[in-house]
Design a protein around this nucleic acid. Structure first.
Lengths: 189, 189
DNA sequence: CCGCTCATGTAACAGGTTACATGATTTA
DNA sequence: TAAATCATGTAACCTGTTACATGAGCGG
């Protein structure tokens, strides 16, 4: 099972409703996982049925009632077991890369446009993650925080998300400029 | 559709059988896509049915016969259409990151072990990709090759694969050392 | 003679995506 | 008064993974 443990990990930090989880999940996972609300609702239901999370009803007068979920002891045990199990390495699986792979056989303009767009998107994420990291470590330096802070897990994963997006941005810029130069050479030659 | 265009892109370089494709696909896609043989056979069948690739039977006496596939004109048109369509940004979706996210609530040893293992795995990929890039550009420098070489698509995607694995390695090393230091501090304090 | 490579699949299942449904309340 | 937010789902579909099947030749 896949999403299951990501949801458990997300609920370690705070008690959340399905709706709240749906809003913070993608960002909280710093880009390395994403899920639609329907998936999260379904997963929470399953997790509760299996006793790995508990939901408590919170009655609200002005808003619809909601259920807040917490990880149970059994949930922690399950996370522990999951952590010890072997991990398969991951792949990126990105359509944009498929497109670039075919770059020599398709029009360059569309590709350059998409690379530029993606670079901008990556930059936005970079800014976001940098702010997030800054907030998490408070006044401390990174070194200090990683040594003495509590809950470094989310910080470390956010670091990976940041590096990933920096990699994305740099590569997009490089690939776009390479394709542009080639187009220029061709029109001259 | 997803795998479909990755297969088309892979067949642009060379005529391949399902079996050959299955062997070169993951590496040829430089880590950013992976597929099992069964998927590839099924996809080739569908692509041929839709007229995007053609298969020609090659009779072999000592080996079982095989079918070699080429991208058709319709396939190229489809790739062009695909390239112009909008691309959704990707996520990493990696179990190891989920585990690190939960680092503050589970045992550190298992995690450190897995991070170290993954760093090694990433390094192996890095070496592989660097060799591949070197071969692709022949005697030329990267600048030269990107400007005047034919087929830069596979080179550019391999560059992304390389950067991704470097990011993996660096992050794994950093996260592992951070967790080790914390463990050391705790045992002292 | 045992296991590997060549060569191609089927079937069942798990996981993820798209589309749709409901209904109250607050904000522009 | 129209749109967004809060809050929770169902159903159908598409994609990916796991397990299994077949059979000939080649190398140790």
């Amino acid at each position: 099972m896949a999403l299951r443990h990501a949801v458990l990990a997300a609920l370690l930090d705070e008690e959340l409703s399905g709706y709240q989880l749906a809003k913070v999940f993608d960002l909280g996972m710093a880009n390395f996982w994403h899920a639609l609300p329907q998936q999260l609702y379904a997963e929470l239901t399953r997790l509760e049925k299996d006793g790995l999370v508990t939901g408590r009803e919170v009655v609200q007068d002005t808003r619809p009632n909601k259920r807040l979920f917490t990880v149970t002891d059994a949930g922690l045990v399950e996370l522990e077991r999951f952590t010890e199990a072997v991990t398969k390495p991951s792949a990126i699986r990105d359509d944009l890369l498929v497109k670039v792979r075919a770059a020599d056989h398709v029009g360059a303009e569309a590709l350059i446009g998409q690379l530029t767009e993606r670079a901008g998107f990556a930059q936005a994420k970079i800014d976001l993650f940098e702010k997030l990291l800054h907030t998490m470590r408070g006044g401390r330096t990174e070194e200090e925080f990683l040594r003495y802070g509590d809950r470094v897990g989310p910080y470390l994963t956010c670091l990976r998300g940041l590096a990933f997006e920096q990699g994305n941005r740099d590569w997009c810029v490089r690939a776009a400029s390479a394709l542009r130069e080639r187009a220029a050479c061709r029109s001259r030659g």
